[in-house]
Amino acid sequence: MGARLQGKVALVTGAGGGIGRSIAQRLAAEGAALVLLDLHDDAMGELAEALRRGGTPVSTHCADVADAQQVRAAVEAARAALGPVDCLVNNAGLTAVIAPLERMGDEDWARELAVNLTGPFHLIRAVLPDMVARRWGRIVNISSAAARGGLFRQAGYSASKSGLLGLTRNVTLEYAAQGITCNAILPGLIATPTVEKLPPPVFDYAMSTTPARRPGRTEEVAALVAFLCSDEAAYLNGAEIDIDGGSRLCPAVLGSTREVAERLALAQGQHRTA
């Protein structure tokens, strides 16, 4: 693996989670110094120590991305520790409630939008001045396949991740001429600890509608993030990149009774694959 990000400072939110952890590890392997931001310090401690043992400069910060003041303080502290942020990865996300829309409470709705949409806005706004001054910056927003197709009984999550695509487009329109790229990644089902705890019938059904017939790996998302943060991706801007094993495609089968039977069997859990 090369050192495409040598000399760069990368900030990863939600760094203690499955995808965030893999992103941090990959960016460190590419040579970046790491700013890890998460709501809970214990989620970052082990990761930070492992990265430091490998020779990566690391600065950790506890902050709620939904709180503008906490975000500003964290970015300022990170700047003092490692220097201005060159690459921002807005990975922190939340699903506050899974329920029919009519039963979604005001606080739950507000919290999901605050973390999943307003949070990235806070981070982008905080790092942009330094990026503009240096005429170089990389912003990667982790959205979701739900941003395009919706997600059953997860209206807040779907709406907030869709809004993140609009934010991505506007950053590109306003700042591309100043050497800054802003792209969105739309993961499908990724094998995080949360996904691994899904009830088998739910997992099997998701796999039956995914052409790849497996969940994605966090390392695969991290590899895409690393590319988008590199100089090689300088002309890729305002893009919405699916990483979903083809699950965004129409899953209907009208020309093969055998394939229909195999999918029904998979959905019923008769031959679960991972």
Rank of each mutant, 00 (worst) to 15 (best):
M1V: 15
M1W: 07
M1T: 13
L5K: 02
G7T: 06
K8F: 00
K8M: 08
V9A: 04
G14P: 03
G16R: 01
G16K: 04
R21T: 13
Q25C: 02
Q25E: 13
G31M: 07
G31D: 02
A32P: 03
L34Q: 06
L36S: 03
L36M: 06
H40A: 10
D42T: 08
A43N: 08
G45S: 12
E46W: 00
A50V: 13
L51V: 08
P57H: 07
V58L: 07
T60W: 10
H61Y: 12
C62S: 15
A66R: 15
A68N: 04
Q69P: 00
A73L: 11
A74G: 01
V75F: 03
V75E: 01
E76F: 00
E76M: 02
A77P: 00
A77F: 04
G83R: 11
V85Q: 01
D86F: 10
D86S: 11
D86R: 09
C87H: 06
L88V: 07
V89H: 01
A92E: 03
A96Y: 05
A96E: 12
V97H: 04
V97S: 10
P100E: 02
L101S: 11
M104P: 00
D108S: 15
W109K: 13
W109A: 12
A110H: 14
R111Q: 15
R111D: 05
E112L: 10
E112F: 08
V115G: 05
V115I: 15
G119Q: 05
F121R: 10
F121L: 15
R125L: 09
A126G: 02
A126D: 01
A126H: 02
A126P: 00
L128I: 09
P129C: 10
A133S: 13
R135L: 11
G137A: 08
I139C: 11
I142F: 08
S143E: 04
S144C: 10
S144F: 12
A145M: 12
A147P: 00
F152N: 05
G156R: 12
Y157W: 14
Y157Q: 13
L164A: 14
L165K: 06
T168V: 07
N170Q: 11
L173N: 06
L173Y: 05
Q178Y: 07
I180T: 06
T181A: 08
C182S: 11
C182Y: 05
N183P: 02
G188H: 02
T192H: 06
T194N: 09
K197D: 09
K197T: 12
D204F: 03
Y205H: 13
A206V: 10
T210S: 05
T210H: 04
R214Y: 05
R217W: 04
R217P: 00
E220C: 09
A222W: 05
A222K: 08
A226Y: 04
L228D: 00
C229H: 02
S230H: 08
E232D: 14
A234D: 13
A239R: 14
A239C: 14
E240V: 03
I243Y: 06
D244H: 09
G245Q: 09
G246Y: 07
R248G: 01
C250D: 14
S256F: 09
T257Q: 11
T257E: 13
R258I: 07
R258C: 00
E259K: 13
R263L: 14
L264G: 07
L266K: 04
A267K: 11
T273H: 11
A274I: 06
